[in-house]
Design a protein around this nucleic acid. Sequence first.
DNA 1: CTGGGGAAGGGGCCC
DNA 2: GGGGCCCCTTCCCCA
Length: 511
Amino acid sequence: MANCMVFHTQIASIMEVLANAAVAEICKLVDDDYAVFRLEINQSQKENRALRRKLLELKVARERAERTMRERVLASRPSSVKILDRYRGMTRGEGHLTGGHRSFVKPAEHNTWRDDQTITVDEGSGTSTQHIVMIESTDPEAAGPGVKLERSEGEEDPRNIRDIQSGAASVATEDPTTPAQPRTRRSITEVSGTPNAVLKSETDTKTLTVTHRLLHTGSDHRSDPERLGLGSLGSPIAPSSEYLPVFHQSQRTVNSRGDGDGDALDTQTDLSRGDWNLRSSSVYSEGFLDKKEEVILADEGTVKVEGNVPPTWNADSHLGDRHSQGRDFLDYRGSLETNPNVTTHSPLHVFKDRDPVSTLMAPSDSRGRVLFDQVLNSNDRARAQAQGGGATSGNNKEKRFLCMFCNKGFSSSQKVERHQRVHTGEKPFSCTQCEKRFSRQDTLKRHQRIHTGEKPYSCSQCHMRFAQPGQLKMHLKVHTGERPFACIHCGKRFSERSYLRLHQQKKHSTL
DNA sequence: CTGGGGAAGGGGCCC
DNA sequence: GGGGCCCCTTCCCCA
């Protein structure tokens, strides 16, 4: 019996020794593999940096070549470039735009603006003549993939003239008496080509904006600077920040100075500064024009920037990866400027899944809403900036909660979460009767009136009833004969802005 | 072609 | 904080 006990003890000891040896061996193997893995990661990171550096160099070279080509073409074919002196947002959906910096792209293939054409818009206290920025070229290539003109509202800044002049050799300005001023900036934003890179050349402030696509792997939403070889990045905002971006995804802002030192992709954490919002949210603001009860004269068709957005407006859009449930892919375009006088691009971009599920969740019907990226880049973004005025607009309510995609500020985390579904495409509310999905509960509720037949808004002057108050309001114009939107070309008046827009597109598009 | 209605997206605000 | 509503807007369909 005693021998048996001893035997068992020895067996146990042997087993323990063997187990320890096995564990040690496993640990060693894991360590070795980990070391190899780390080495491979480092090598991949180096390769990525080298490729990124080459990409940037190629972009710069391409931009120069295109600019040279444009200059040659324009020099050989004098065309006119109109300066948008004061452009009020009459683009589709930008009716609320409040100001700040504006930018839009005149599609090369839609040269519908006339020479010397003006826009007369109502600014509340009367009408004023608006000038149109125009880059006119019969050669689509001559206009380049996308020339973005930026300026600040309220400025009669001749720098913008120079902006265009620098990009095109032949430029006609509305005001030839405008005194020449030192070139303070030149902004040619290239948004075409490689989807993940946006190059912005500045004469004085050379700024490269690099878009990084962040791959998310489901539960791991951490930013991983090492993965992209970006060094110590990923602390998007300092605790002391006044503004609080709401992160449900990884976020990264990269500022790359085009000094050719790719390894020194200069990462910054300027998000910690309040001006992060001021800068990045300024570009897509546009003018405000939404004065009901007044006659509005506008040449809306001529300033439409979306719908027929040129493919260069957002090269990423054609990639078409639609984001599903806020995961998978997030292409976050971060941009910071070294010169506070230079506006930045709105750091925004989201890909949505195109799988059937997300198609259901984010309807990709033929109504154009499939153009998610276009919406983001023009309509929603501009409108978002306008309506919210950006994170730092002069709203009374403090908007501390920032959208991680567009920097728009909201007063509460719930609001920003709701808003961010615009970017993520998340539609958690589904109709039980038709399986349609919505991003908001109230939208679902409104939708369900279709099934219930509920039309709580009735016209006081006829039997008509409506499911939405806006529909009733629009209907009332039938009774009042209100037609506040007048065409500046023919004087025809319309009850709705969209009617005017359609009219001008069809009737006066060649003007 | 124009205009009216339906449906939906999105922001602001109130309770 | 969350729900709900209003408002504004766009797009589509159709008479």
